[in-house]
Amino acid sequence: MTSKRVSRPRPYRALAHTADLGWRIRGASLADIFVNAARALTATLTDRRRLRRREVREVAVEAPDREALLVAWLNRLLYLYDVDGFLGRDFEIVHLTPETLTARAAGEIFDPARHLAKTGVKAATYHHLEISPRPDGWRATVILDL
């Protein structure tokens, strides 16, 4: 995987929210933000560490700006999960512009017998959505509708 593990601060952290779930994502680069947001999504659905890297899916999405691109990316991953049961454990950004993303997700088909079923996610939303540069890298906020 191209993404380096960010040692500090945590790559994703849950925000307290009554109705749904918000994630505060951090990364050294914009690509890291997309990788860590995808990991956060998988971690919402299941215990990510128990997934194996059995197959790789390539995903390409477009959106009018980078924030909308983050939502499009997460919702495409939810689509893969809904249609095939596929969940990514690790993610690799192949190509990223403010309007397009090509990435690979390595993971496997969810198996209720082996994998922990956590919380269902309906969608990543545009609410309070932000991606911003910080002195130490990048930060994003995304709220999931559960």
Binding site: A63, N75, A123
Partner: peptide
């Protein structure tokens, strides 16, 4: 289910424009 979630997400994109 997922069908409705996807319709909402698809049309939010349409409506932003």
């Amino acid at each position: 289910r997922g069908l409705g979630h996807q319709v909402c997400d698809d049309y939010i994109k349409v409506m932003l424009k």
